[in-house]
Amino acid sequence: MIGCACALTLTTWTMGIDWPMIVGGKDPISLPNYIPVTFEMTVLFTAFGMVGTFLITNGLGPNANPNMFDPRSTDNKFVMAINLSSNKMAEADIVKILQDTGAEEVNIKQF
């Protein structure tokens, strides 16, 4: 929406108001000709807006601290993190449950 509005404002203002020139006998503000630019601007703004949002919400950025549980999780391992402090079960119980259900490795890490 912002992109769309920006594009329309830009096109009409520059072509029609700021310095109107006669181009190919067309009206100074010839909306049909502005459709492609408007569309592209809309898409661009949306895409960048979404990606920006994604990066911000995930706290991603160049060289951001990965804050990883285990580096192997990006390869072929899955990590399940359980917050001990907010969990009613005892630490040992949790470890046992996990090992029973087939966990390959259980680590307790302090973050």
Partner: peptide
């Protein structure tokens, strides 16, 4: 740098 701190 380019992984942008992806933690999966």
């Amino acid at each position: 740098t380019f992984a942008m701190g992806w933690n999966g």
